[in-house]
Each structure stands twice: as C-alpha cells, then as structure tokens.
Simulated scan of single mutants.
Amino acid sequence: MTTVTSPLSGAAVGLSAVPDPVFSGSMVGPGTAVDPVREPTVAVSPVDGIIVSLHPHAFVVVDTDGRGVLTHLGIDTVQLNGEGFELLAAKGDSVERGQSIVSWNPVAVVDAGKSPISPVIALEASPDALAAVVEEGPVETSTTLFKWK
C-alpha cells in the first residue's frame, strides 16, 4: 500500500469540486485536490520515488512500486508558460516524500485569472484502489491525502 501525502498546505477539496472536467470527472485518475494557502509556497513530493515528468505547473513522481502520482499546480496554469513557477528539482531525480519540487505563488495564479486548486492524482488507478481519501478540512504537507491499495 502506498501512502500519498499532501504536496501543499491548505484545504482538501474533493475532485468533484475541481473546476476542470478532466479532473472532476476522474478522467486522469482518482485522487483528491488541495486549495493551497494564499502565499508563496513550495510543492513537495507526495511519495518517495523518481520524478518522471516535470513542468513548472505539474509533476509526476513514480514510487518504488511503479505507481505514478501527479501533482497539478492549479487549473489551466500551463497557459502561464512557467511564469511564477521555479523548478527546484529535475526530471530523473530520486526524491523523498516532502522534498521540494516547485516553488510558486498561488496568489499570482489567482491574479492571472486561474484557479490555484491543485489535484493530486493516482495515475492509471481504478477508483476502488484508493482508501481513506481526504476531501475536506485543513491539510499540511505531511497530511495523508489517500492510501493506494
């Protein structure tokens, strides 16, 4: 079983409330989301593993069981072309849970007219593969968001 922790501090938000049909419809996979604190912050790795995909607005870490966890920083933030995001790691890096990956400012995302809500997705998982999914309440970067059976 893989424990996936929050990459951000803020408030948990169920996927159905994410303002993007791809995420709210679980088309990418099941999971949850975090509405981050409104201050400059750092997104951290939600699992131990290897960064297999890294963009200013999103990253995927694959754990030792081959399970990929996507963290998408905000909605439609790809349209910001990396502005306001700083990569703190590189594709191919081995990372530990809690290790810094991307520095960003959710306030700048809001100011640009985008949602800062950040989905955390279990890629290629079936909906019944997740347990103890947190969909509301405050979370810190160490808070468990879900368990992947």
Rank of each mutant, 00 (worst) to 15 (best):
W104M: 03
H57N: 14
T71Y: 04
G113H: 02
E140G: 15
I50Q: 15
P36L: 15
A125K: 13
N105F: 06
S26C: 07
D111P: 00
A58R: 01
G113F: 04
V69C: 09
G49F: 02
V42I: 15
I51C: 08
D93Y: 06
S26F: 09
V13N: 01
S115V: 02
K91H: 03
K91P: 00
S26G: 00
P127F: 08
A90D: 14
S115R: 05
T141Y: 00
V37E: 15
A43K: 11
P56F: 09
V139N: 06
D20L: 07
W104K: 10
V37P: 00
P19R: 14
G14V: 04
D63W: 04
F59E: 14
D111W: 01
R38N: 11
L123A: 10
T77G: 05
G84Q: 14
A12K: 08
V139E: 04
Q79V: 00
D76Y: 11
V69H: 10
G92V: 06
S100C: 06
E140Y: 01
P19D: 14
V60P: 14
W104R: 07
V95Y: 08
K147W: 03
G98F: 09
K149Q: 14
I75K: 13
W104D: 13
V107H: 02
T141K: 14
E140M: 02
H72P: 15
T2R: 11
H72Q: 11
I101Q: 06
T141G: 10
I75T: 05
V28W: 03
T32V: 03
V60L: 11
A125S: 13
H55A: 14
H72A: 08
Q79A: 14
A112F: 10
L80V: 07
N81L: 13
W104Y: 15
P127N: 09
V110S: 14
V102R: 04
M27Q: 08
S118V: 06
A125V: 02
V42K: 11
V42Y: 07
I121W: 08
T32K: 04
I117Y: 05
S126A: 13
G49Y: 04
V44N: 01
A33E: 12
S9L: 04
G66R: 03
S26L: 13
